[in-house]
């Protein structure tokens, strides 16, 4: 289990979700979700595929609108923000996509510089290059700056995706399946990187995963989702100290008991 993170400020809630519902046609994906994320805390949302985990963070990032409920991020209600306010909020919320979502037509360096060019046009090119170097160094891929995304491995793409998010120095990181489709060694590297980002950049994070090792290593708080609702929350040992069939099944599959 992850050791206690002393930097967590339990008096400061950066994300507060209450009574969140979301449906696509007749498919009710989220059915009354409540969640709090504190400053400096890594919250892992664990669950099987199709339980609504990714939809939850897309709503937090303002990519989807909820049917009902409130999503408060850094003191702002996401669903009521105008375009300008949402844009300002998004600069403080980093979103790491499952496959990196790197821009195919740009090199790694251009991918990283792009958010700065668009959002902080007054930053000079020398300073921009320095920022790119810092985040590339943070993810341990300084040698890939001139490579195209198609030349990178799956793990490298995810790390560059994280670097691109970090360049705007967000307060909150949202990770969508950061270890999906990776070998165990790369998974460990990504898990360590998530913890390193939490420490070095003092971020609060929501990590969407179905990988228990990832949850165990990175999560200060684990929330298990089933059919659009959280059925258990707490630290890793608390969550898995139960006789609930779903939780036991999850644990057994991941750790092959």
């Amino acid at each position: 289990m992850k050791p206690f993170t002393p930097e967590i400020d339990f008096d400061n809630t950066v994300i507060s979700i209450r009574g969140l519902y979301k449906s696509f046609g007749s498919n009710h994906v989220l059915r009354g979700v409540d969640l709090d994320v504190h400053k400096g805390e890594n919250v892992v949302v664990l669950g099987r595929s199709g339980t609504g985990k990714s939809v939850l963070i897309k709503i937090i990032a303002g990519l989807l609108k909820p049917d009902a409920g409130t999503v408060n991020v850094l003191g702002l209600e996401v669903e009521h923000l105008d375009n300008q306010s949402l844009r300002e909020l998004r600069m403080k919320v980093g979103f790491c996509f499952q496959n990196g979502a790197l821009y195919d037509s740009m090199t790694v360096g251009e991918n990283l510089a792009f958010p700065i060019i668009r959002n902080q046009p007054k930053v000079r090119s020398a300073q921009r290059a320095k920022l790119v170097d810092v985040v590339l160094d943070a993810v341990g891929l300084s040698n890939t700056i001139d490579q195209m995304p198609s030349e990178l491995s799956g793990g490298q793409r995810k790390r560059i995706g994280i670097a691109r998010t970090l360049i705007l120095r967000p307060d909150i990181m949202l990770y969508d399946e950061p270890t999906a489709g990776l070998d165990p060694i790369t998974c460990t590297e990504i898990n360590n990187l998530i913890n390193e980002v939490q420490r070095r950049f003092n971020t609060s994070s929501i990590i969407i995963t179905h990988d228990l090792t990832c949850a165990k290593v990175t999560g200060d708080n684990i929330a298990v989702m089933k059919e659009g609702q959280f059925i258990r929350q707490g630290n890793f040992d608390t969550v898995f100290a139960t006789g609930d069939d779903l939780i036991k099944e999850f644990y057994d599959y991941n750790f092959i008991q």
């Binding site: 300002e88 499952q98 790197l102 958010p115 668009r118 959002n119 998010t165």
Partner: peptide, 22 residues
């Protein structure tokens, strides 16, 4: 379409870039 299905459009949006304009 390729940018849309590989989430590059969403990536622009969450980076506070207006993908429609760009």
């Amino acid at each position: 379409a390729s940018m849309k299905v590989t989430e590059q459009v969403d990536a622009m949006e969450v980076s506070a870039i207006n993908p429609f304009k760009y």
